[in-house]
Design a protein around this nucleic acid. Structure first.
Lengths: 358, 358
DNA sequence: TGCCGGAATGTTAACGCTACCGCATACTCC
DNA sequence: GGAGTATGCGGTAGCGTTAACATTCCGGCA
């Protein structure tokens, strides 16, 4: 029904190809203005009278018109092609990353490629990306913290933005949270619950965020006058499995911690599993907190108290930054090297409780 | 360096806009053929001599040319706009879905929108999608099994493809595995390991896949002459949390099962957690198997024996199907209602073992 | 009255690619 | 040997949109 009225509306007559979709011309005809005017309205440009603007908007709404992105991209020469490189983060991290990236690239009319990358980003890989027409890279950790990366990329003239690297490489734009403060706040919260023996499980050594989180934890202890003990610290790798091992060691010690702060949610999940195995109910016998607030945190039982890192939002900002960098690069300017810190947030759920006296 | 040589190569002279990127014309000029011929080579079309073809490919490789997707989409009138609606599946399921969808939409030059949808898809939502220019829907469960959906969609002339619905709605294209056979095979495997008391945790009642998996399980028992007992069956909802409860009940019974078959990996993970809590090492004291083979399955400890459902691949096929449906719809043909069953696979890892005698 | 300037709108020509048609050349078949 | 018929390639005309320039309109001011 609707589609037939569309066809009538545009009068079929012209030969040629025809795709059947509504165009800006259809809207223009309905309003009795030119396509240009409609375009201006849709792009919020000035030089259109309020009356006309409203008429156009009404017609757009009524017809259900929406612009053809391909044509827009082509005409405005804005068809940037970005590539999100991913290694092997936790699935929930990846899906948030994807969702955010997708949304923003769509908004900014860019094309998104998504490429897996085991190990390192080397010259061969970069060359292949260049050959694929990729104009800029979105780099989540640990890729963005690979030594020598900046040099490699600048050699190939490939702009990039680091996502969630606590101490991003010099000269590269980045979006991240303040990992140190976040860890400090979470630790302070655990201290405020009365915990004094607080275990800490680190993330991978190859990510600056791991170090920052550890530093934040130690700062909070120091601030509270609690002396840090080596036995409370376990080094792991952000994976469930490595968390299992770390938690096992922490909980098998002579005087086990009453609270454990894991550097991400996956390892916190592992810690909860181990606690149960040891007959320690969470949170009554052991408090467990995580970091990231991925989907996992709320599906766990008990639901995880954690630090929210707004990954999707960070991904969006990274896309915008990358587009800026690409434009700068193409017009011969040096990288802007923007560094944006987005706010984190403590999320209180059910896995933390005041220390029980004993 | 490189970019300056590009600019020289195309001779700057013409006025107009210029975007600085390599075009098909550049390639054509280098090879001394027309743009058309280059286009044919790139699209694997016939009517090009082998010699010319090779010359063109060499030039493409040398220049690092890659076609502008926006222009391709525009010219071939192929800029279909699809929308993947997602509810709230497990994160790993979602990221696989996204990855597959992204890859294929890219390949077929379609635009992808990704929209969350709590609850049900109603007329308002569909209208909004139409207004957004969406031409077809990708529907993972449980959305695609919502009663009355086919009617709703056909009323708005919106083609759709059901992903992973075991018994897809009549008249809608779909991609799925044979859930029943998969469950039958997995159950047969457990029987072959000597297990006789095999617990089963179902998925949500609103998904046909749940019923099919249960049916497969019962068929395998029947085939082996093992009498099914009600106590072995727990109804859950595909979530970690619901799995926790189901597993708890199964393992607290008087004669607990020696093996538990959970209808997805999340619930299998929950089962392992509960087993540990009960002091039952997996797999030596209890065998646990899952379904889907999401990323979770291999990060778990012990790594999960499960059924692989190739979600990314299914998503790709669904995109192709949807594009077919959209083209049919726009040319006034009835839906093709393709139904494709992709092969599943038993993945043997470490969470299943032969029954220990006792 | 006539002319100027800026606001509102229109016209034209790209953007980079491919569909469609046309034109040669070579090859087959009575 | 002339009529069909493949094969290899090029020319032209769009696809739907926007940038850049052109035009109209109208109030105000000398």
């Amino acid at each position: 029904m609707r589609s037939s009225s569309r066809v009538e509306a545009r009068g079929r007559a012209r030969g040629g190809r025809q795709t059947g979709a509504l165009t800006i011309e259809d809207v223009a005809r309905v309003c009795g203005v030119s396509a240009m005017t409609v375009s201006r309205v849709l792009n919020d440009q000035p030089r259109v009278s309020t009356a006309t603007r409203e008429r156009v908007l009404a017609a757009v709404a009524k017809l259900g018109y929406s612009p053809n992105r391909a044509a827009q991209a082509l005409a405005s020469a804005g068809a940037r092609r970005l590539c999100l490189i991913y290694t092997n983060p936790s699935a929930s991290y990846l899906s948030e990353l994807l969702l955010g990236t997708l949304q923003q690239t769509h908004l900014e009319h860019a094309q998104l490629l998504v490429e897996p990358c085991e190990d390192e980003l080397d010259a061969v890989a970069v060359k292949r990306l260049v050959a694929d027409g990729v104009e800029g890279l979105l780099l989540p950790p640990p890729l963005c913290e690979q030594p020598g990366l900046t040099a490699l990329l600048s050699r190939h003239g490939m702009p990039a933005v680091a996502i969630a690297a606590s101490c991003p490489p010099k000269g590269m734009s980045s979006v991240h949270i303040d990992d140190r403060s976040a860890a400090r706040e979470m630790t302070a919260y655990l201290l405020s619950l009365g915990h004094r023996r607080i275990g800490f499980i680190t993330g991978s050594a190859d990510q600056t965020a791991s170090h920052e989180r550890l530093t934040g934890y130690r700062e909070a202890l120091a601030q509270a006058g609690v002396k840090f003990e080596r036995a409370w610290l376990r080094r792991a790798k952000f994976t469930y499995r490595s968390g299992l091992k770390a938690a096992e060691q922490l909980l098998s010690s002579l005087r086990p911690p009453t609270a454990i702060f894991a550097s991400n949610d996956d390892m916190a999940a592992a810690t909860i599993a181990v606690a149960h195995r040891h007959g320690l109910p969470v949170p009554s016998a052991l408090t467990v907190v995580g970091f990231d607030d991925t989907a996992l945190a709320s599906t766990l039982s008990p639901a995880l108290t954690t630090v929210r890192q707004p990954i999707a939002e960070m991904a969006k900002k990274a896309v915008s930054q990358l587009l800026v960098e690409i434009r700068r690069h193409q017009s011969g300017q040096p990288p802007a090297a923007l560094e944006e810190t987005v706010p984190h947030q403590l999320i209180h759920r059910d896995s933390a409780a005041a220390r029980t006296m004993k």
